[in-house]
């Protein structure tokens, strides 16, 4: 058992106990929402885990690192950043995917750039954001986030 598993579950259980003490009705409502979300997300999670299984079984380290490895260079980083900005993968399932790619020799920089743009930059949701906070703020926030994601990825790649 990993320590993160213990930590996460203890944290959730304490929150749950606290919630029940504070307001039983609301706590039950929260659990119902959790159950509903579980049903909603479980097909996607299974599909991703199966895809990871195939990826790790049929692609060698060499093949994967050629596409998303250190040799991908700056152009690779830009491509991954764009992919992350456009795709709408729930971050919850992007992490196991990232872990499996890292295991097979993907570069830390590329993975970090991908995860960061995936969450921070949203081209699909940009029209909604413009409507809410105006063109200036929305465009600046997404544009700067795109650059920030790349910087974060490069720093992570250098340190780790």
């Amino acid at each position: 058992m990993s320590s993160s598993f213990v930590f996460i579950n203890i944290f959730a259980i304490s929150c749950l106990i606290f919630a029940f003490i504070k307001d039983k009705r609301k706590a039950i409502q929260g659990v119902v929402i959790a159950l509903r979300n579980f049903i909603k997300i479980i097909p996607t999670i299974l599909a991703v885990i199966l895809s990871i299984t195939l990826l790790l079984a049929f692609f060698s380290e060499k093949q994967i690192s050629q596409i998303v490895g250190d040799k991908a260079g700056f152009i690779g980083i830009i491509i991954v950043a764009f992919l992350g900005s456009i795709l709408q993968i729930p971050s919850l399932i992007s992490f196991p995917l990232a872990a499996s790619l890292l295991k097979r020799g993907a570069s830390i920089t590329l993975i970090a750039v991908f995860i960061t743009t995936l969450t921070m930059v949203g081209i699909i949701t940009l029209p909604l954001e413009i409507k809410a906070v105006g063109k200036r703020i929305a465009l600046m926030r997404n544009g700067i986030s795109f650059i920030i994601a790349i910087i974060i990825g490069i720093i992570l790649g250098m340190i780790l």
Partner: peptide, 14 residues
């Protein structure tokens, strides 16, 4: 997963 979803559910309500 259950822990993560329960946390999300609780925060949504509270």
């Amino acid at each position: 997963l259950p822990a993560v979803l329960i946390l999300m559910g609780l925060f949504t309500v509270f």
